[in-house]
Design a protein around this nucleic acid. Structure first.
Lengths: 324, 324
DNA sequence: CTGTTAGCGCATTCAC
DNA sequence: GTGAATGCGCTAACAG
């Protein structure tokens, strides 16, 4: 592996000059540049990224930390965020905490150790103090990590209202929503707004809590079955897309026609809301914009650009589907 | 930011001793160790990862390069691979080439620059020579990158046969399969085996090619519609899960009952085969095992452990669903 | 067991 | 414009 010094010697120039053509910085005579470029080609010289990182104290890496890569929302988010980061010259490190504190802590430590330049945090298993102690570029998505850490999330309050209004308009009288237990989250506003809106109209709302520790499909299926067993007269449902899929599936198994006897509204607008035979009527979170804003925020922090807002709330809308 | 020298001075020891307790290597007296640990705590010392990387010429990063993160197969794959890598002490860099040569080249260059220790390649947009030129730990999944680069993939030949046999057993007479155009891939064996098996039994096989450049759902939907328009008498279908979803959806729209009038068999066994109202009968690729083997392979290469096989083909099986 | 030394490969002054 | 020197923070080899 040829290094920069080999190139310098072979080209008969100084090491600094080589560095300058490498980084395209400062002045280099056309002559010297040509000679150096030739030599680099001959030697198949490739700059060592680790050395560059150490020299400039930055590695152009951003970690995205999520509780579950497999969840469609996070999957879609990562796709968009990776693209945004790429366009800004950063590579993406994905970290799945699987809801485990120790993992989240370890991933968070990557920033302290400067293994990454910044972190986008979509998980929240630690005390707020931990995040604050980790000074450095952190932004959070859909998690409130404490004052001073920029938050990007969708307008859950509005989302809850949109879903509630739709179910009310469709004549539902007894609706259920899945509520995800766990640390306090921006998403909680959604549950509240949903229930408030409907209760004002004297529509009964059953809340079933799903264990946030296991947000996989099997759990949603179980919970959906439990719901129909306990509340067979339910005529409306609201939950994240994956939960809506589970409810649709169980309804299908039990011969409950949707939307005739049961209206279903999802939340997320992720890919899975469109791949089933019925399009799910769902509140669309602007996942792409969430990705854009969170990436912009963390990159601003990394590159020392001032940030004005600490909280960015993005608009949601109801996407017409076949289920409500 | 305190560094290792600050700690050494403050603790009244040498810099080497501090390094030893950091890495838990070599002998350190209990006394010194205690003193150093205290000092590290006082100073809130955190070792700088970039410096460590440069020192030991390794950064414990592995890049996973895929053509499309959004595809369920890759999403599931990344989830498992990230976990496997984590358990072995590596972090995961995800790279979405979006089918673009320049991006794949850039991601590949990360290895040459030693920005990552190794690469798992699930994309194939460059000439084989490029991969070989990039000496270093590379393994490929579901892509044949040339002799010398370990390949991990599922048994596509068997998968094609399994699907074909099922459709034949179910009495199909005219079946269609989606064939993904693009560079030659191990998956091609599946198309061949499928067609061979059925043609032997005098069952007609229509092949419709989908553009591998855009393996998203909208394209599959279009193609499915085209299929039903051109071949309205089709009674069997085979394609990746996402394509199967599209076909199921279009069939539903056109009032074609599945499995009564149309049998559908998927390929992948990804999450989406189970979240619809009907479970898709599908050939399951052992995504988790693919992840385990590919991670094991790349880590072996990184850590200079000898590899015996150059090719690992993993078994597939037919998962019973409701669509065939 | 421990302190010192010499790199790791490049970026970045700063005189010339 | 350019080369030599210094430092980034740590690892590892070595003498003690």
């Amino acid at each position: 592996m040829a290094n920069i010094r080999d190139v310098a010697e072979r080209a008969g120039v100084g090491i600094g000059t080589v560095s300058r053509v490498l980084n395209n910085s400062g002045y280099v005579s056309a002559e010297a540049r040509l000679k150096i470029e030739q030599t680099m080609a001959e030697l198949e010289f490739t700059p060592n990224q680790m050395a560059r990182n150490l020299g400039r104290q930055s590695n152009n890496l951003v970690a995205i930390i999520v509780p579950n890569i497999g969840h469609p929302f996070f999957g879609d988010y990562i796709k968009h965020a990776e693209m945004e980061l790429y366009m800004r010259g950063y590579k993406t490190v994905v970290c799945d905490t699987m809801q485990r504190r120790d993992r989240e802590q370890e991933f968070l430590d990557m920033l302290r150790r400067r293994a990454v330049d910044g972190i986008i945090m979509g998980s929240h298993a630690l005390e707020d103090e931990e995040y604050r102690k980790t000074k450095g570029p952190i932004v959070s998505m859909e998690q409130r990590l404490g004052k001073g850490i920029p938050l990007i999330c969708s307008d859950h309050r509005k989302g809850g209202r949109l879903a509630a209004r739709r179910l009310a308009e469709r004549g539902c009288r007894q609706v259920a929503q899945f509520v995800e237990r766990g640390a306090e989250k921006p998403a909680d506003a959604r549950y509240l707004a949903f229930a408030e809106f409907l209760e004002e109209k004297n529509i009964k709302v059953y809340e079933i809590s799903t264990n946030y520790n296991r947000l996989d499909f099997a759990v949603y299926l179980q919970t959906a079955n439990k719901l129909f067993n306990e509340q067979p007269r339910i005529d409306g449902f609201f939950g994240v897309d994956l939960a809506a899929c589970a409810v649709l599936k169980v309804a299908h198994q039990r011969g409950i026609p949707v939307p005739e006897k049961l209206k279903v509204v999802g939340y997320d607008g992720s890919m899975i809301s469109e791949i089933g035979p019925q399009n799910i009527t769902t509140v669309v979170q602007p996942i792409r914009e969430i990705a854009q804003h969170s990436v912009a925020a963390v990159v601003d922090l990394i590159e020392n650009r001032p940030r004005l807002r600490d909280e960015t709330i993005l608009d949601v809308y109801l996407h017409e589907g076949d289920t409500a």
